[in-house]
Design a protein around this nucleic acid. Structure first.
Lengths: 191, 191
DNA sequence: ATAAAGCGTTGATAAATATCAACGCTTTTT
DNA sequence: AAAAAGCGTTGATATTTATCAACGCTTTAT
C-alpha cells in the first residue's frame, strides 16, 4: 500500500529510496480510509495532516455567504490533499476538504513530515519538485481565469485534465472553473 | 547594493549569511539596470535569468489575440521576477516581463542559482520559504478570482496590496484583477 | 418498493461586465 | 512651445454570465 507513495517519491527525484528510508516512511505515514462525503478538513479547523491519495477522489472548497461552494482543488490518486496555509501558519482554514468517493490515503502531520525530511534527502527534493510544478500549474490556471472566457477555460480544462472530466460531475467542474452549472451546460451544448 | 539581497535572504531563513557566503553571492549575481518599458523577458524567449529587484517596479503579462494585455504579476522592491515554467522546462515563455519604472536588479541564471544552492544552505531554505509563501498567495488569489465579484476582488486587493495601488495606474490594477479599466473606474466611484 | 436526493438540461429574466467612442486633464516627447 | 501619449472618466449599448424555476432521468437511501 505504501508502494504507491514510494513510487511517487522515486518518480519525483533523481535517486531511489533505500530500504531503510522506505521503512522510515512506512512508520511515519498512517493509513486512513475516508468514506464518501467524509470531511478530511473542515472550515475553521487548523489543518493537522497532509494526505497522499492511494485510491479515490477528493475536493477542496470554500463556502460563501450564500452557501455556494467554490472548488479550488480536485484530487485523485497520487495527489496530496491539505491546506498549506493553515498547516504552516497554524491558522483556521477557510476551506473544506472532503471525499468525493470512498478514499484511501496515507496521512502525516506537518511536524512529522519536517522531521522525516531531515532524515530522507529525497523527500526534500520531492517537495522542491512538487513546489515547482505547483507554481507552474497555479500560474497557468490563474492566467487562464483572468484572460479567457468561460468557454475557453472549459476547453483548456478538458484538454489538460481529461481524468477529472470522467471522475467528477459537471456541476463540480463548473464550480472549479468559477462558473455556474447552467452556464457550463450551455457551453457544452454549443461546442 | 547586494545588501538588500543579503537582508532578504537572512529574513527568509533562521540563520545569517557568513562573510564567505556573501562573497559567493556577490560574485554570482550580476547588477542590471532596466529602463522604463525595457523588456526583461519577451514572449517566445526562454527565460534565462531570474532577477531580484533592488529598486523599481515591473510587471509580467500575456498578450491575447486582440492585443490585450493580461497582467499576472506585479513586482516592486524585494520581489523576484522571472518565468519559472520557461526557465525550468526551457520552453518559450507565454509571458512578457518589462520594467514599469526604471529598475535596478540583481540577476542570475538558473544554472548558477542551482550551483550556488549547493554551496549555501540558506539559499535552499529561502527558496523553500518563498515557495510556501507563493503557494499560499496563489491559492488566495485564485480563490478570490473564482469566488468573488469584481468589486469584492478590488476591495481585497486594495486591502492586501496597498503598495501596488500607489505604484501602478488603475488600468494596470484592472488588468491584474481580470477586469477592464472602465469597470474598475465605476467600481471605485461606487465605493 | 418507494421515496428522496443528485444530476443535467432548458427557458425566461436579471445582473454583471465588456465594448466602443468621446472627452478633459496631465505628463512626456519632440 | 507644440504635439503626442498616457490616464481616468462617462455614456450608450452589447455580450456574457448568473439567477430562478421547472422538468425528466438516474442513483441512492429508507
Amino acid at each position: 500500500m505504501h508502494k504507491n507513495l514510494f513510487n511517487y517519491i522515486n518518480q519525483h527525484t533523481d535517486s531511489v529510496l533505500s530500504k531503510e528510508e522506505e521503512l522510515l516512511i512506512e512508520a511515519a505515514f498512517k493509513f486512513k480510509k475516508m468514506r464518501k462525503k467524509q470531511y478530511f478538513l473542515q472550515e475553521g479547523e487548523v489543518c493537522k495532516h497532509v494526505g497522499f491519495i492511494i485510491k479515490g477522489a477528493m475536493r477542496q472548497y470554500s463556502v460563501d455567504e450564500k452557501g455556494i461552494e467554490h472548488i479550488v482543488h480536485l484530487y485523485v490518486e497520487n495527489y496530496w490533499a491539505g491546506d498549506r496555509e493553515s498547516s504552516i501558519m497554524l491558522t483556521p482554514s477557510q476551506f473544506n476538504i472532503d471525499a468525493w468517493e470512498d478514499t484511501e490515503m496515507l496521512i502525516i502531520t506537518r511536524a512529522e513530515m519536517l522531521s522525516l525530511m531531515e532524515k530522507i534527502p529525497s523527500l526534500v527534493k520531492m517537495i522542491q519538485k512538487m513546489d515547482e510544478r505547483n507554481a507552474i500549474a497555479s500560474l497557468r490556471r490563474l492566467s487562464s481565469t483572468i484572460s479567457n472566457t468561460a468557454e475557453k477555460r472549459y476547453e483548456e480544462f478538458a484538454e489538460n485534465h481529461p481524468q477529472f472530466l470522467q471522475r467528477f460531475p459537471q456541476h463540480i467542474i463548473a464550480s472549479y472553473l468559477g462558473i455556474t452549472k447552467e452556464t457550463l451546460s450551455r457551453i457544452r451544448k454549443k461546442i
